[in-house]
C-alpha cells in the first residue's frame, strides 16, 4: 500500500488518512461575490506538485503534505504548526 509519512505517527498506510484539499487562502469576509465563489467552488485541480491538508483518522491529527499528482509521490510533510510558521497563516 502507499505509505504516508505522518509527522506524528511515522510511516503509515495511506488508508489511515483522508485528504482535506489544497492549502488555500481564505478570502476576507467582505470580499466580492466572484472571489467568494472561487474560494467555495472552483478548484486548482493541480496536475503537478500540490500542497494539501491531510488528516490521520485514528489520531484526529491534521498536517500538510506536498505531493505530485502526476506520479502519486509524496515529497514532504509538515506538522501544521511548522507549516504555518514557515509559510505564514495566510497560505
Amino acid at each position: 500500500m502507499k505509505i504516508m509519512p505522518c509527522p506524528l505517527n511515522g510511516p503509515r498506510n495511506i488508508s489511515e488518512f483522508s485528504c482535506g484539499g489544497e492549502v488555500e487562502h481564505l478570502p476576507p469576509p467582505d470580499c466580492d461575490h466572484a472571489t467568494w465563489i472561487d474560494y467555495v467552488y472552483l478548484e486548482n485541480n493541480t496536475r503537478g506538485i500540490v500542497r494539501e491538508w491531510w488528516y490521520h483518522t485514528p489520531t484526529a491529527y491534521w498536517f500538510v503534505a506536498e505531493r505530485d499528482t502526476r506520479t502519486d509521490e509524496i515529497l514532504r510533510t509538515w506538522p501544521a504548526g511548522e507549516f504555518l510558521a514557515e509559510f505564514g497563516e495566510r497560505r
Binding site: N13, S15, F17, S18, N45, T69, D72
Partner: peptide
C-alpha cells in the same frame, strides 16, 4: 479513490476493500 491523481493506475488496497 480517496484522493486525486492524474493517473490510471490500479491499487491492491482498493481491490481488497
Amino acid at each position: 479513490d480517496p484522493y486525486g491523481v492524474y493517473m490510471t493506475r490500479s491499487t491492491l488496497d482498493w481491490k481488497e476493500g
